[in-house]
């Protein structure tokens, strides 16, 4: 049983949690339409455990995907499996899934503690255990002090945290979170990311949507880029980047004799552009062939030129977003 002083969830014993046999989230050719408006179209996904970020512009279908996972909406075609369970069976699925939506759902006049406790009682916990778990969850999201206040009086960030507390209170194997970091202050944001990492480290799913691409870079084990209801790319950020051939890969090389290395690199066809950095101790190199670039740089190093560091410049969400979806975030 969790206590307010021990982190809820990953380390806690979970009598309600089901050890699923197929620990993946699967979408098989799933489409969803709202009347004639496309929600998502022919989505096929295999999401392994870990932190997965859904990234896409407004109206791209991120929330639709999440609602489909939780069974709040049903696909017009295709099949969804959440660690072996169908979203059509909330009685089983909701024991292993916690979903923090972007909407408040606290009954009018209820306090934060009431709200989280109510969810746990409905899950089947006794009043005493529900209260203990609720307090632990509230403690985990730094809402213990404000838990006796009415939800209606909370700020945006506090509402965000109370929804997160409700989602994690029953210690689910799958956390689905719609823009969970919105409105959080830096300290709570860092703690929330740490919580996601704890969950992911235990082989659980943390699926979230975010507009803050820098955060997606930092926290995600894999990303799913979605636009106009279609999956544009999915996988680890690096592997997604490697699949994008029409945009040259960018690397920043820090070195002493930058101009000499630049001239040596220009002898190779796959190098499309080199920019000297202002301090003349670095180069931004664009190449069409990462493998050839790697070999060329090895040869240059062996020839006695000192290369201090090589860092990919566009293996991040910002670059992927720009390449695959466009500048409008």
């Amino acid at each position: 049983m969790s206590t307010p002083n021990s982190p809820i969830g990953p380390a806690a014993a979970t009598p309600m949690s089901t050890a699923a046999t197929a620990p993946e989230v699967l979408f098989d050719d799933v489409s969803k339409f709202y009347g004639e408006v496309l929600g998502v179209n022919r989505v096929t996904l295999r999401i392994p455990p870990g932190i997965t970020s859904l990234v896409g512009p407004n109206g791209s279908g991120k929330t639709t995907l999440m609602n489909l996972m939780a069974g709040l909406i049903h696909p017009d075609r295709g099949v969804i499996t959440m660690r072996g369970l169908s979203p059509r069976h909330p009685e089983r699925l909701m024991r292993i899934l916690g979903y923090a939506t972007q909407y408040d759902s606290a009954p009018r006049g209820s306090t934060g503690l009431d709200f989280v406790t109510t969810g746990l009682i409905l899950t089947g916990f006794s009043s005493a255990e529900a209260s203990t778990r609720a307090q632990a969850a509230l403690h985990r999201v730094r809402m213990a002090e404000a838990s006796r206040r009415k939800v209606a009086s909370y700020s945006k960030g506090m509402r965000q945290r109370i929804r997160l507390a409700q989602a994690i209170a029953h210690d689910p194997d799958i956390l689905v979170l719609d823009e969970p970091l919105n409105g959080l202050d830096p300290l709570v944001r860092a703690e929330t990311i740490a919580l996601f990492r704890e969950y992911a480290a235990l082989g659980r799913h943390v699926i979230l949507s975010s507009h803050v691409l820098q955060e997606v870079d930092i926290i995600s084990d894999q990303v799913i880029l979605i636009a106009n209801g279609m999956i544009i790319a999915e996988g680890q950020i690096r592997s997604v980047r490697e699949e994008i051939h029409q945009h040259p890969s960018q690397f920043v090389i820090r070195c002493r004799d930058a101009s000499r290395i630049a001239s040596l690199l220009f002898e190779h066809d796959h190098i499309t552009q080199i920019k000297m950095q202002d301090d003349r101790l670095g180069l931004l190199v664009m190449t069409r062939n990462r493998a050839d670039f790697s070999r060329a740089l090895t040869r240059i190093s062996l020839a006695g030129h000192t290369v201090e560091s090589i860092v990919p410049a566009d293996e991040n969400m910002g670059a992927l977003y720009e390449y695959l979806i466009g500048g409008d975030r």
Binding site: A70, G71, P90, M94, T101, Y103, D104, P107, L122, T123
Partner: peptide, 16 residues
Amino acid sequence: DKTLHFWFLIPARREV
């Protein structure tokens, strides 16, 4: 009131 999802996210059959 945009609160129906609270009930749909509990581990209960819709009939229940």
